[in-house]
């Protein structure tokens, strides 16, 4: 949160007399402590470790499969871009993101988001957090910011690990977009960064949903399980053709549209729809989490 925003942020009655600048400092301090609590947890580090391992596994598997000099498997199975990895290691970034986005990444985000409020509540530390003159709204916003930071961190861990493995095992260089045109390696790197950012942004919806679930219960495990369960349910529903009228409103429906960034020219329609649906989920479940959290009785 920036200094300007804190001036207008909603503050629950009772703390209205506080002075402005200490409040801004408070927010920054709160965010910093929240981030360090999140990222110092062994659980968070383990999740990031699992995410970093996925590209390594994919890279080694592709390397072994094609080690005898044969081209990549001709059939179109597997995640997107997998057939191009042997020719350009940069494609491992795209493949790894395509492989982790449907499940690993949102699951990790669901764990962190589900634990955000319910975990504190379950450990009995939530009331101490509220003793500080930060206010519930600001605490919730800080929690959400920390979860979003984890979304970005998780995605970047996958991307960087994939880039490192790709550079080690496969050649790099000019690459062919899926439209058949060529782009330079530097532009390819830029597109990889853009794709990583879009993938991170695709997780905004799950993060908001997880945060809302987290405000509903006092048990961190229950909140995580519910969030991950919802994630799996939505993914399954997204596969049922009879529900095609509803599917555009599922948060995961346009996730794989990040591949459209590899078209030339870039096909923006689905990308925009994806970002729009994430913003919608953030608004709806963010405000629901706010309504629930600021109105509930904190007993633990």
């Amino acid at each position: 949160m920036s200094r300007a925003e804190t001036g207008t942020a909603t503050v629950p009655a009772g703390t209205g007399a506080a002075v402005r600048s200490p409040r801004a400092l408070w927010t920054l301090g709160l965010l910093r402590s929240e981030l360090s609590v999140t990222f110092r947890r062994w659980r968070t580090l383990a999740l990031l470790g699992v995410l970093a391992a996925v590209p390594v596994l994919v890279g080694i598997a592709v390397k072994i499969e094609t080690g005898d000099g044969a081209g990549a498997g001709g059939d179109a199975g597997g995640p997107a871009f997998i057939s191009q990895i042997t020719n350009n290691g940069l494609f491992l970034v795209f493949t790894a993101l395509a492989a982790t986005l449907p499940f690993f990444l949102p699951m990790a985000v669901g764990v962190v988001a589900g634990d955000a409020v319910a975990g504190e509540s379950g450990a009995g530390t939530l009331r101490y957090l509220l003793v500080a003159p930060a206010g519930r709204t600001r605490l919730l916003l800080t929690k959400y910011a920390a979860v979003l930071a984890f979304c970005l961190a998780g995605t970047l861990v996958v991307a960087v690990s994939a880039l490192a493995v790709g550079a080690l095992l496969f050649p790099l260089g000019e690459l062919t977009t899926i439209s058949g045109t060529r782009i330079s390696f530097a532009e390819g790197l830029l597109r990889a960064l853009a794709i990583a950012l879009v993938v991170a942004a695709s997780l905004i919806g799950v993060a908001a949903l997880g945060l809302f679930v987290s405000t509903l219960t006092g048990s961190g495990i229950a909140a995580m399980a519910t969030t991950v369960g919802l994630l799996i349910t939505v993914q399954i529903l997204d596969q049922i053709p009879q529900l095609h009228a509803l599917q555009p409103y599922f948060f995961s429906h346009y996730w794989l549209s990040f591949a459209d960034l590899m078209r030339e020219p870039v096909y923006w329609d689905d990308l925009m729809k994806n970002l729009g649906i994430q913003a919608l989920y953030a608004a709806v479940f963010g405000s629901a989490a706010w309504a629930r959290f600021t109105a509930k009785d904190i007993t633990a």
């Binding site: 191009q84 899926i178 591949a259 078209r263």
Partner: peptide, 28 residues
């Protein structure tokens, strides 16, 4: 002409005397 598919694309390119078909999913 390009046929947009999920995460891949099939392009048919006519350039002068050459006609290329490129299937990015199978890299063929």
């Amino acid at each position: 002409v390009s046929l947009l598919q999920d995460g891949s694309e099939y392009s048919l390119i006519h350039d002068g005397k050459d006609v290329w078909g490129y299937d990015s999913a199978s890299n063929e």
